[in-house]
Simulated assay, not measured.
Amino acid sequence: MSLALSYAPKPRPFARRALPVSSRPAGRFLSRVLDGSSPSDVQKVGLIRKNGKCRKEVRLLRTWFQKLSDISSLASTEATLKDALTDAVRELGFDCYAYLNIQPVRTTAISNYRHEWQQRYFERGYKDIDPVVTTARARMEAFTWAPESPRKLSSRVRAFYAEAGDWGIRSGITIPIRTAFGHMSMLTVASHKPSLSLEHDIDQLAAVTAVALLHAKLEQHEPEPTARAPVELTARQALCLKWSAEGKSMKAIAAIEGMSFATVNFHLNNARKALDAGSLPQATALATKLKLI
């Protein structure tokens, strides 16, 4: 049976083949509309279908975030975690992932982007112009992204997007989280597609919870980054910092190395600036952690 009218002397412009009757009101509405209706009714059908698609997208992402939480909880080794992340990202329909731990000087990445692109990203300081990082800092919530109209972008950002696109990174989802001492980490899943079809808000709680668990697991394993921001100290800066880390005062360092007090102070100050440290103790701690001394 059908709810389609059994007679129609003058078929209307929007006439369609009758659909099977559904016991639900939405099904009866669809059947009536597609048999013969006004343009406004057809728009309502489109809205119903769009809403159904949005609900499906939300459920899919929520399930994926739960899977990411499970992976973070169960992975016992660095290799297991990275392999599971790669598989999960592909199951979601994306190509690759990048986890950025953004801190002064020692920003690091764990990613399966092409190694050449990761190295180029850090060597050229792209973190400072990357619109995804800028948006993550400003919003601190999960969001989708794709290049805007070229006329709205600066020449540097246009060049950055074009280069990223050459490496197959054209759109994605990014979830930033606040970490200890006011720092930020973010997980990005990226696609070669020029835009995403996601049309509904992301479940923020599920997204942040999943990435927070991932961050905790990575902090626990302390994996070797796949790329990091380059930090360099001169030989004398490293030497003076090493003596400082050993508990020597600037006066003692000057006497040991045969330098003037002013020279030691000069090298230590430059080392502190190179490490973006607020104090000499912080500079020595950073240099030690980065294995520069």
Rank of each mutant, 00 (worst) to 15 (best):
G168F: 08
I102L: 06
C96L: 05
L196N: 01
A206Y: 14
D166H: 05
G172P: 00
S111V: 07
Y126R: 01
Q66Y: 06
P147K: 01
K67R: 15
Y113M: 14
G182Y: 12
R178A: 15
S185T: 05
D128L: 11
P194T: 09
I173V: 15
I169H: 01
W117E: 10
A138S: 12
L100M: 07
A210D: 00
V133T: 12
A138D: 13
M140Y: 04
Y161N: 12
G125C: 09
W167D: 14
A136R: 03
A180W: 01
G93M: 06
Q119I: 14
I169T: 03
R139M: 06
D70T: 11
P176E: 05
A98W: 10
D203F: 09
R90A: 13
G93C: 04
I129V: 15
V133D: 02
F143Q: 05
G182T: 05
Y121D: 05
F122I: 04
Y99E: 00
E91G: 02
Y97Q: 00
S195E: 14
A75W: 03
P104S: 12
I110V: 08
A109Q: 05
I202P: 07
I202Y: 10
Q118K: 07
K127S: 13
R120N: 10
S195P: 02
W167M: 04
T80Q: 15
H192L: 03
Y99F: 15
I129M: 03
S76H: 10
G165A: 07
T188N: 08
R137P: 02
R156Q: 12
D201T: 10
R114H: 15
V208W: 00
E78H: 13
S195W: 13
F122K: 01
I129N: 07
T107Q: 12
L100E: 01
R120G: 09
Q204C: 10
D203K: 03
A88S: 14
T107E: 11
E123W: 00
R139S: 10
R114A: 11
S155R: 08
T107M: 10
G165C: 14
W145R: 05
S72D: 05
D70C: 07
Q103T: 15
M184Y: 11
F181G: 06
T179E: 09
T174S: 15
Q204S: 04
T107V: 02
W167T: 11
Y113D: 10
R151E: 10
E123F: 01
T86D: 12
L74E: 11
R156S: 08
